[in-house]
């Protein structure tokens, strides 16, 4: 799995639960390294081991931990992180939802070798849609749930996001948009904020 994904897992655990906790996880997962490097590739088993070790040490279910990680990816990285890249998906939350199936292509514009969850967006009557999520890391759908809830907040939209289990090798995430403009959106400027 790409180092950026592993590094995101590491940053989530370190920043949420502390540096000492991360060291504990690395030890428990028999990582053999202090931490992941963003631009190197790692065996998928290492990512699995880290997530399993963190769940054991925190006595938390894998699903809820992954969902928190999805939220962290949006809210935990300040004004220069993934949140900004996701806001390039469109000016409204509905635009953003429909841009989700472009995420792997978009990511490859910047990093040709990165593999991200493949998301297929299926629209239903009303403001409902279903996301079919396929990714080697099981539970990636829960990361998407946390991420979508945080992005809805970012856009000021009110919506219900839920994980509906696994069907034919894909994790299914349901999204019901209740109000597109429920609260003031967080500001987003196309121009990069100054360092």
């Amino acid at each position: 799995m790409h180092g950026l994904i592993n590094r995101s897992i590491q940053c989530f655990l370190r920043e949420t639960f502390g540096a000492a906790f991360w060291q504990h996880v690395a030890q428990e997962a028999r990582l053999g390294i202090d931490g992941f490097e963003a631009m190197l590739d790692y065996d998928d088993a290492l990512s699995e081991a880290v997530i399993a070790a963190a769940g054991r040490l925190l006595d938390r279910s894998r699903d809820s931990l992954l969902e928190d990680m999805g939220t962290y990816l949006v809210t935990g990285t300040g004004d220069r992180g993934l949140r900004r890249l996701l806001r390039f998906g469109g000016p409204t939350f509905a635009d953003f939802l429909h841009s989700l199936d472009e995420i792997p292509d978009r990511a490859r514009l910047a990093l040709p070798d990165i593999e991200l969850p493949a998301l297929e967006v299926v629209e239903h009557a009303g403001a409902n849609l279903t996301l079919w999520c396929r990714f080697p890391l099981s539970g990636a759908g829960h990361v998407i749930v946390g991420l979508l809830r945080a992005m809805a907040d970012d856009y000021g939209a009110l919506c219900l996001v839920e994980h509906r289990g696994e069907v034919a090798g894909a994790e299914v995430v349901g999204v019901s948009l209740a109000a597109a403009a429920f609260a003031a959106p967080r500001p987003f400027d196309l121009a990069m904020p100054p360092v």
Binding site: M39, P91, R106, L109, A110, L111, L190, A191
Partner: peptide
């Protein structure tokens, strides 16, 4: 202070800005 609405829907400007930003993060 241009926004997405200032570009034609077919314009790749937004993709370009996205790539520049993603690359700077990398």
């Amino acid at each position: 202070g241009l926004t997405e609405a200032d570009f034609a829907a077919t314009d790749l400007a937004i993709e370009l800005l996205y790539v520049v930003e993603a690359k700077s993060m990398i």
